[in-house]
């Protein structure tokens, strides 16, 4: 069974195909926010060059955020519709988990940090657990100061990963001494690796049950609740 992975929650568009032996195709485009234009052609390219036909795809894995809302939605809408048309299930995964996965052999506590814009970050803590990582916290949206306070409170050996970590590197280091991984964006190669394991134990959902992880209300609702509480 082939797993198709769709990753569009950050500025990068990343598509991977994997079988049980590992990744057979990986297409990545730093698309400059042209996710909708790039995604389906990238899937087509991956299938063609890895010699994968559509009926061989048994499950679609998709990054459901947190991340860029518009990018996420292109990926989620595409994944849901592919699953609907091919009549296959979906493995929805968090961007923070996908970012942490390549560090699964690391002894340090992993903090995935995605740039949430507007001076905020999406972040979550992870810990190595053999061949995978497990989440220590729920994903959250907050300020860099809140993250630093959390790090100070933990007093652990930390490695940060993600575009949010790199953007606010100085501010984080000023508050708490920690290390930084090079990777800025989650890759579909990690996504399919995680999803393949999940799919083996049928940890998947129907296309209609895939929900985006926004962690932030639409601006209008934020303004509205501010106005009501004022």
């Amino acid at each position: 069974m082939i797993v198709l992975g769709i990753e569009t929650a950050t500025p990068r568009v990343s598509v991977a195909l994997a079988d049980h032996d590992g990744v057979v195709a990986l297409v990545e485009v730093d698309a400059g926010r042209r996710h909708a234009e790039t995604l389906v052609p990238a899937i087509e390219f991956a299938c063609r060059h890895a010699d994968v036909t559509l009926p061989e795809i048994g499950v679609v894995a998709v990054d459901v955020g947190p991340g860029l809302f518009t990018g996420m939605r292109v990926g989620i809408a595409t994944a849901k519709s592919l699953a609907q048309a091919l009549e296959i299930p979906v493995v929805p995964l968090s961007s923070l988990l996908v970012l942490a996965h390549p560090l699964r052999n690391d002894e340090r506590t992993i903090v995935s940090v995605v740039d949430a814009r507007k001076g905020e970050i999406f972040y979550g803590f992870f810990r190595s657990a053999g061949d995978h990582v497990h989440a220590l916290t729920e994903p959250r949206c907050g300020s860099v100061d809140e993250l630093v306070a959390d790090l100070v409170g933990r007093q652990q050996s930390i490695i940060c990963v993600g575009d949010g970590a790199l953007r606010y590197r100085e501010q984080i280091v000023d508050g708490y001494r920690c290390d930084f991984a090079d990777a800025a964006f989650p890759s579909a190669s990690a996504l399919v690796a995680i999803a393949d394991k999940e799919a083996r134990v049928e940890k998947w959902v129907a296309a209609d049950d895939v929900a985006a992880l926004y962690l932030r209300k639409p601006d209008a609702e934020i303004n509205w609740s501010t106005r009501e509480s004022a």
Partner: peptide, 14 residues
């Protein structure tokens, strides 16, 4: 973008 993405995925799959 939601509608275009969904339609292209359906067209591609079918």
């Amino acid at each position: 973008l939601v509608g275009v993405s969904a339609a292209k995925a359906l067209a591609f799959a079918w």
